[in-house]
């Protein structure tokens, strides 16, 4: 056991091992604050442990042992880590199911659909759900909401937050049946206060905010979700220089991808649909063209199927193509009313 050899205090060593950190490589990509929370120790103690560990792993390398580049991970570790990552629930069990549990952190998810299908509703729901406390199975994080279209309505966010608080306290009561003292501390107003809202009126502002996000999030480490509703709007105005548009969009996608990886957060981007002339007829496609479609890790398309709203996984490296119904209710996104419909795997 590599950790056993580290020159650190016995209590820290015991905490490390009981938390599952037995190898030096498992410590290599952790941030001090994350480790501090994991082990319930102070930040400076965690920093000390990480320093000692990285020094030791460097010594290992000079010995010619199993050297690892600082920050690199084996696929096995990554798999392990991915399974531990919490996901942001959509409040619709069917939708969560096809998403593999919800919206993934460290990934950029693009969601597209026609006007009125519920993109903004889903955005607000996610901004609320990312705040579900850790002891209720959530992430206890905060959200950044970048509104380019002006469709975010505070009254609607409040409505969804109120419904969510009700659901949470119900669940909380179930969890702590014997312990009446455990009260929900989260209030709808707190939820609204934890949504950092940016209203954007031009594409230059949009680029500026996305450049600023890195600084902002490094100061607000509790942000676990960034929503852009929608990425498209200001980029569909007259762009004479289409190459410029492609470059700007590409740069933006790269920045968002980096944010997701660096700060371990989820990025959700909304996109509009447009008609595309293909094979002699008009078909629906997400806007911004082909080069953009490579920019996101996952792609989900929302569409009408009869009188029901459906979501379809269009692209994902890890999820299989599937579709599931969902509905938009007063309380927010929920399971579709017709429960007899099963999820269709394709």
């Amino acid at each position: 056991m590599e950790v056993g050899r580290l020159p650190i205090s016995a209590s820290h060593r015991a905490k490390l091992i009981s938390a599952g950190y037995t190898t030096l490589s498992s410590l290599s990509s952790l941030s001090p604050s994350y480790l501090a929370r994991e082990l319930n120790i102070t930040d400076s103690e965690a920093l000390e442990i990480l320093k000692v560990a990285s020094l030791n792993s460097r010594l290992d390398r000079t010995d010619g042992g199993q050297a690892i580049v600082n920050g690199a991970q084996t696929a096995w570790d990554m798999l392990h880590e991915e399974q531990l990552l919490p996901r942001i629930t959509t409040s619709c069990a069917d939708l969560d199911n096809i998403l593999g549990g919800g919206i993934n952190c460290k990934e950029v998810t693009e969601i597209g659909g026609v006007p009125g299908i519920g993109k903004t509703q889903l955005g607000i729901q996610l901004a609320v759900n990312v705040q579900i406390p850790v002891d209720l199975g959530g992430m206890g994080g905060k959200a950044v909401y970048i509104d380019t279209e002006g469709s975010f309505m505070v009254e609607r966010a409040l409505q969804i937050a109120e419904a969510s608080v009700l659901d949470m306290s119900e669940y909380n009561d179930l969890l702590h049946k014997e312990n009446r003292a455990c009260q929900m501390k989260l209030k709808p107003n707190d939820i609204l206060e934890s949504i950092y809202y940016f209203r954007i009126c031009s594409y230059t502002e949009q680029m500026a905010v996305i450049n600023y996000l890195d600084k902002f999030i490094s100061e607000h480490k509790d942000v676990k979700l960034v929503i852009i509703d929608s990425v498209t709007f200001h980029f569909r105005q007259d762009f004479e220089d289409l190459a410029l548009r492609t470059r700007l969009l590409g740069g933006m996608a790269l920045k968002l991808m980096n944010l997701a990886k660096t700060y371990n957060l989820a990025v959700v981007i909304f996109n509009q649909v447009t008609t595309k002339y293909m094979d002699g007829s008009f078909q629906l496609a997400l806007a911004l063209g082909d080069s953009w479609s490579h920019s996101c890790t996952n792609r989900v398309i929302l569409y009408w199927n009869g009188d029901e709203r459906y979501a379809y996984i269009d692209k994902s490296p890890s999820l299989r193509s599937a579709s599931a119904p969902f509905s938009v209710t007063t309380k927010g996104i929920r399971n579709s009313a017709s429960n007899y419909k099963r999820i269709r795997m394709m």
């Binding site: 950044v144 505070v154 009254e155 966010a157 409040l158 107003n189 609204l192 206060e193 949504i195 950092y196 809202y197 940016f198 209203r199 954007i200 009126c201 502002e205 500026a208 905010v209 600023y212 902002f216």
Partner: peptide, 13 residues
Amino acid sequence: GVSPENLLRRPLT
């Protein structure tokens, strides 16, 4: 434009 708004500082409706 590059500082976030506090949603509670606007009217709730």
